[in-house]
């Protein structure tokens, strides 16, 4: 299977050089690596430049409303556990208007992957501050929220109790692809923080400048150590890699497991044979 098998015919409207291209490529490559058929895949988003992504995938795609992709994905996954469900979006969508849904999706351990393209700005609405914009950036650009400290999304998701947390950069495609692959394979809620810049409202150099502040986690890093992960999340520089991976829970996460036996599947949906044809996904 190729990444392009999971692309729709629609041409992206993103600005040339936007990090969203990397996310699209990395996500579809990872899904192809895992041999996920389009009909078994749902890609769900809220609203924003990054939230346009589902439309560019060949999948059961849903471009919903601002900040609400997680509950929608939860409803789908809880009632159709056999569908691989991915949520994508921006930092405004996820960490501002939609923030309240994150800890609840985490504590339900819904078996979905949540990938946020964090460019520290509102792209779609033309350059307002986001909860992850730095104080320097807001001061330089005269944006609202000076004196308001930025939010640390990785720390927030870790402290909410997520079982899988990774960070990557939209400019490093092989890394992004492998992080997505690992996240999707994880049985339980997984979170991928994707750093990027917005070429239009931050300038073409911004993404690269962020990348210069990133380091790969060293090979000896132990991702099962939550304390270390919390430390790495608070470091001055951005650590890239799997920051935390908890061994999967004894009780399977909501919306995971063998679709033929998972409770609560709508019985009328597809025959037992149809379900068996579908390879069980973690």
């Amino acid at each position: 299977m190729k990444a392009k098998d999971l692309r729709s015919s629609l041409e992206p409207v993103w600005c040339k050089g936007c990090g969203d291209f990397g996310v699209l490529k990395g996500l579809t490559s990872a899904l192809a690596d895992l041999e996920i058929a389009p009909e078994r895949l749902a890609v769900i988003s809220g609203i924003g430049c990054s939230s346009r992504l589902p439309g560019y995938t060949r999948s059961y795609a849903f471009n919903s409303i601002h900040g609400r992709a997680l509950p929608i994905a939860s409803g789908l996954k809880l009632s159709r556990p056999e569908i691989t469900t991915i949520v994508v979006g921006g930092d405004g969508d996820g960490f501002s208007i939609g923030l309240g849904h994150i800890p609840h999706t985490v504590r339900r351990n819904v078996d979905i992957t949540y990938a946020v393209l964090d460019n520290g700005i509102y792209g779609l609405t033309k350059g307002q501050a986001s909860p992850t914009s730095t104080e320097d950036f807001k001061r330089d650009r005269g944006l609202a929220g000076r004196g308001e400290r930025p939010l640390n999304p990785v720390l927030l998701v870790l402290s909410s109790g997520a079982g899988f947390v990774a960070r990557t950069h939209a400019g490093n495609l092989p890394h992004l692809r492998s992080m997505m692959r690992e996240a999707i394979s994880y049985a339980g809620f997984s979170f991928v923080h994707i750093l990027a810049g917005c070429v239009t409202y931050q300038g073409p150099q911004y993404g690269e400048a962020i990348y210069q502040r990133c380091d790969m986690l060293p090979p000896e890093y132990d991702p099962t150590d939550l304390g270390k992960a919390m430390e790495a999340a608070q470091a001055e520089r951005f650590a890239l890699g799997v920051l935390y991976r908890r061994p999967p829970d004894a009780t399977p996460p909501w919306g995971s497991g063998d679709p033929a036996t998972a409770e609560g599947i709508w019985p009328a949906l597809g025959s037992a044979e149809a379900k068996r044809e579908l390879p069980a996904q973690g």
Partner: peptide
């Protein structure tokens, strides 16, 4: 649950309605 259905107590009504639409998107009467 005895009829094969599922119930979620959501974090708020926005999420509740979102979940309903997610399940409905999945083909399930919600």
């Amino acid at each position: 649950p005895a009829t094969g259905g599922r119930v979620v107590q959501a974090e708020d009504e926005i999420a509740a309605m979102g979940m309903v639409l997610g399940a409905s998107f999945g083909g399930v009467p919600s």
